[in-house]
């Protein structure tokens, strides 16, 4: 029993530390000194560096969506609605979530591993010893990069997904190409697009902050770096899915009537 209580206490302490880091980061974002070069560098590694996997994920998701839905729609004689289904699923759900999961694997682990090894080799302490604040120098740029690049990557993924669906519709399902596009564009309302673009902001923030927290709280040498990296991916993925549910519930209540 004591063990369970001790575990719960440790867990609560970690959550508290995490929020502490979030608050500090927020404060550091709006006060000087700032490091714009670091932000651009991180936007490049996190954003531009993730384009490949995001394009591939989007393409194959769109293609498989078209294939799967065509099969069920055909039984109702509604094959022409393929574009509609692909665009709605891509923009509302699959685009943001699958992009976030892929980026969580890439950037969540990358951030945790990089910051973790900086911690265990005393580089973070060296930074503090030379009078600069690791939160400003390391966390804020990554957080901003995650926040800004996730929506961009999601738009990319959505678009490529639509094109993938179109490819399958035209080449395999023999649907007229223009019909696919008109039906897919018609299906989207402004609220779909808005909800599909708010989600990636939240996901990007979560992934960057969890990655930074796991990295900065690394202990126990190189083994610890491995542990933080794995945990970071697991926690990011779970939080992305959980917050997706909450956000969807929220949007259905307030945005999409």
């Amino acid at each position: 029993m004591d063990e369970i209580i001790a575990k719960i206490k440790a867990w609560v302490a970690e959550v508290q530390d995490f929020f502490y880091l979030c608050v500090h980061t927020l404060h550091a974002t709006f006060t000087r000194p700032r490091f714009p070069n670091e932000v651009f560098l991180q936007m490049d590694t996190i954003g531009v560096g993730s384009i490949n996997i995001v394009v591939l994920t989007g393409l194959f998701t769109g293609m498989v969506l078209a294939l799967q839905t065509a099969l069920s729609l055909e039984t109702f004689g509604a094959k022409n609605y393929v574009g509609r289904v692909v665009s709605l699923s891509m923009v509302r759900e699959l685009g943001p979530v699958l992009t976030a999961l892929m980026v969580a694997g890439r950037m969540g682990s990358g951030i945790a591993a990089e910051l973790g090894s900086m911690v265990v080799t005393d580089q973070v302490n060296a930074m503090r010893a030379m009078g600069s604040d690791p939160i400003r120098k390391l966390v804020v740029p990554r957080m901003l990069a995650g926040l800004l690049m996730m929506p961009a990557l999601t738009i990319f993924s959505d678009t490529i997904g639509l094109i993938g669906g179109w490819l399958v519709s035209v080449v395999i399902l023999n649907l007229p190409g223009d019909l696919y596009f008109t039906s897919s564009i018609d299906a989207l309302s402004l609220s779909d697009i808005v909800s599909g673009l708010i989600k990636p902001f939240v996901f990007g923030y979560i992934i960057a902050m969890v990655g930074c927290y796991m990295g900065l709280s690394t202990t126990g040498g190189t083994q610890g770096v491995g542990r933080s990296t794995t945990q970071s991916v697991v926690i990011c993925s779970v939080l992305v899915l959980a917050s997706d549910f909450l956000l969807t519930r929220l949007f259905f209540t307030f945005l999409i009537k």
Binding site: M118, A126, R128, A129
Partner: peptide, 23 residues
């Protein structure tokens, strides 16, 4: 606080074990 320390640390130089150079 950490912010006050950032100023004090300017008087100090530190050579870490294993150097701790930025990779």
């Amino acid at each position: 606080t950490e912010d006050e320390m950032l100023i004090v640390r300017q008087k100090l130089g530190m050579v870490f074990q294993e150097s701790a150079l930025f990779d």
